[in-house]
Design a protein around this nucleic acid. Structure first.
Lengths: 131, 131
DNA sequence: ATGAACCCTGACACTGACGTCAGAGGCAAG
DNA sequence: CTTGCCTCTGACGTCAGTGTCAGGGTTCAT
C-alpha cells in the first residue's frame, strides 16, 4: 500500500464527512477514486481538500449538479475551461452575494426584535438580560 | 363582507406565497385564521405582513418549529414573553450571524477562483471576460 | 339559479442530500 | 483459519416545505 493512498473510511474522517456522502459524491460525478482489484476505493491526499471544497459549495447552497458545472474552474483553473463553467461560476457568486445581503437584512430585523424585547423585559423586571 | 377581510387566495397573492403554503403554516400553528360558517378561512390586513415575516424566517433557515418558538417575541414584543422564546431568538440571531460569516468566506473563495480563471482566460485569449 | 371561480379536507408525490440496513466480500493479525 | 473490522452494491427511509390531485361544497354576478 502506498503511503499516500487511503481508503474511504480515512478520507471520510479526515474530511469530516460520512462514508455515505463520499459514495454519493462519486455517484454525482463530483469525486473520483481509483479502485483496487477487489473494487475498493482508494484516494490521495489532495482529495481531502477537494471534499472540503465540495462541502463549502453545498454550504453555499449549490446543488450537486451546479457544483459539477463549476468544478472545472476549481480543479484546473490554469486550463481554458468552457465558457459555460466560468459563466456559471460568476452567476453563483452573484447569487450568493444576493443571498448574503438578504440574510444580513434578516439579521438586522432579528436584532431589532431582540432590542425591542430586551428593552421591555428590562423595564418590566429591572433584571439584566443576556444576549 | 368586511372591507378589511380577505380569503386565502387574496392573502396568498398579496404575500407572494401559494395557497398550499398558507394552509401548511396554519397546520404548523404559525398562522391563525377565522372561519366563516361554511369553514372558509378569513384573514385581516396585518396577516400579509405576518406571512412575509414567516417567509423571512424560512429564508433565514429556521424550521417551522423554531419559528413557532420565537413567534411570541414578534407578535407581542410588548409583552413579557417566556424566557425560552427570547433566548431562542437570540440563539437564532447568533446562528444566523455565524452562517453569514461562513457564506462570506465562501464568497471570497469564489471571488479568488473567478480572478484566477479570468486572469488565465485573458492571457490565453486576450479577450475581455464578463463578470 | 346557474356557471365560473373560488374554497374545503385528505392524501399522495416530489426533491436532494443523506441515514440505514441487508447480504456479501476483502484484508491484516493472531 | 478465524476473528474483527473494513468495504462493496442496492435499496428503501427520512425530513420539510410544497405541488398536485380527487371529490366535494361556497360565493357571487348575471
Amino acid at each position: 500500500m502506498q503511503a499516500t493512498t487511503m481508503r474511504i473510511g480515512e478520507l471520510a474522517e479526515r474530511a469530516g464527512v460520512s462514508v455515505r456522502s463520499l459514495r454519493y459524491y462519486e455517484e454525482q460525478g463530483l469525486l473520483a477514486s481509483t479502485r483496487s482489484p477487489s473494487g475498493q476505493r482508494h484516494y490521495v491526499e489532495s482529495d481531502v481538500g477537494h471534499v472540503m471544497f465540495l462541502q463549502r459549495m453545498y454550504a453555499a447552497g449549490l446543488s450537486s449538479r451546479t457544483i459539477l458545472e463549476v468544478m472545472p474552474c476549481a480543479t484546473a483553473p490554469s486550463e481554458a475551461n468552457s465558457d459555460a463553467a466560468f459563466e456559471r461560476l460568476v452567476l453563483e457568486r452573484d447569487r450568493l452575494s444576493a443571498h448574503i445581503d438578504e440574510l444580513t437584512r434578516t439579521r438586522e430585523a432579528l436584532d431589532r426584535l431582540i432590542v425591542l424585547n430586551r428593552d421591555h423585559r428590562e423595564r418590566t423586571f429591572g433584571a439584566s438580560v443576556p444576549g
